[in-house]
Design a protein around this nucleic acid. Sequence first.
DNA 1: GTGGTCTAGACCACT
DNA 2: GTGGTCTAGACCACC
Lengths: 129, 129, 129, 129
Amino acid sequence: MKWNLDKDKPICPQLRQLLSFLIASGVYTPHQQLPSVRQLAVEAGVNPNTVQKTFEQLNSKGIIYARRGAGWFVSEDINAAQLAVKEIIKEKTAEYFDEMHKMGLNDDEIRTYVKEWDNECTTEMQESD
Amino acid sequence: MKWNLDKDKPICPQLRQLLSFLIASGVYTPHQQLPSVRQLAVEAGVNPNTVQKTFEQLNSKGIIYARRGAGWFVSEDINAAQLAVKEIIKEKTAEYFDEMHKMGLNDDEIRTYVKEWDNECTTEMQESD
Amino acid sequence: MKWNLDKDKPICPQLRQLLSFLIASGVYTPHQQLPSVRQLAVEAGVNPNTVQKTFEQLNSKGIIYARRGAGWFVSEDINAAQLAVKEIIKEKTAEYFDEMHKMGLNDDEIRTYVKEWDNECTTEMQESD
Amino acid sequence: MKWNLDKDKPICPQLRQLLSFLIASGVYTPHQQLPSVRQLAVEAGVNPNTVQKTFEQLNSKGIIYARRGAGWFVSEDINAAQLAVKEIIKEKTAEYFDEMHKMGLNDDEIRTYVKEWDNECTTEMQESD
DNA sequence: GTGGTCTAGACCACT
DNA sequence: GTGGTCTAGACCACC
């Protein structure tokens, strides 16, 4: 498993969203064991504490559960994961529209921009924060 | 002037982007004086230090300039501001596509989702967890 | 035998306390053989190592003893078990009072609460967050 | 402020419950600033990370909220805190009854034991886990 | 100064 | 081996 994480952005949300997606899309199935905290930490190149925190957040959403000494497992009900993914998509889209509005684009302009995105995408750009 | 700022997100970038847009779109014209640091801080309900920092960042991009003892003014050339706005739009769109890809949506699915966004937005947005 | 164990809490103490009670109350009598480690592990749905550890702890308290190749047996003197049960009751009650004190309840309020517990228990227990 | 924490038990829940109670009982009032993460860590003799984790848990329950760079504040609505306290009391009482049941005491015996607790309390006892 | 995040490493109990 | 918890200390952005 390749864990493409952007080290310049908070890792927890990235891992959380990635795992939510993997569970929601059936890559991990109910009651299947997830990689251990330590193993995933090594694979993803992050600290075990970060993975632990991510797992606990997913646990509090009912997406995964832990058995002490045994490991982390996918919850029986993957609706929680699918709901989480839908919410992520919605939130990010709402946020995107909001930011575009602030930049003076109305909904139709946004849609046109998105529709033609491929062309512009070819041009790489950089910007410091 | 109403400064719609999301207090849960970093203020500096929000202010920076908002002012860039206001200048790029001609709300503030070249050589026009901007609100004072104190005044803007009060109006926007943020810390004066934050406003000061924002102004300095815009200054370093050539979007505004300072006259000692007088205040901050819009640069003669608004191209810098317009360029900044374009970059913001590009960057945020690229980021949005990237995040949607991670959630399993391909470009066409993203466009369809964006196209139909209004409907979902009016019917079931503002869904708290 | 039904071993009601809460899988979300440490197994060892639960098993230890449960066996202490069963011996103290005469369900298991002196010199009677206890279920084998393997059998109890299967019945209770826990790891054999956990059962083994529990037996050794009870052994160190003089509540049970081992005969090599034969299994575990109840000690002749069940006072050790009865003492252990009393201590568990005392300890847990002291802890309960202490925690209630921290939540602002004085002794009388605790007693009133405990006195009326049944009512609340039947009406609104099992309230998930 | 004296933070009586039992270092032999998990600190996070202790802090969480203590702060919930202090807010529910009005010691801390809505929008009042709590001690900073670092300050509370020093006062309570624990690690700042532990305090941070506690605050985030209270935040996720809507009991407190954070303003970046400013500090942690009590939520406007203290119902969340009062609800949390009630749940703590309920949970601990249910757990206490459950454990007493396992030790062979029925509800009436528990109530009698609790009623006469004061007398027994005078005798100190020790027990290793 | 503040919160937010992460790394590094330790110890414990349970499987 | 596993998760769960905590300590220590660092860096960042923001106020």
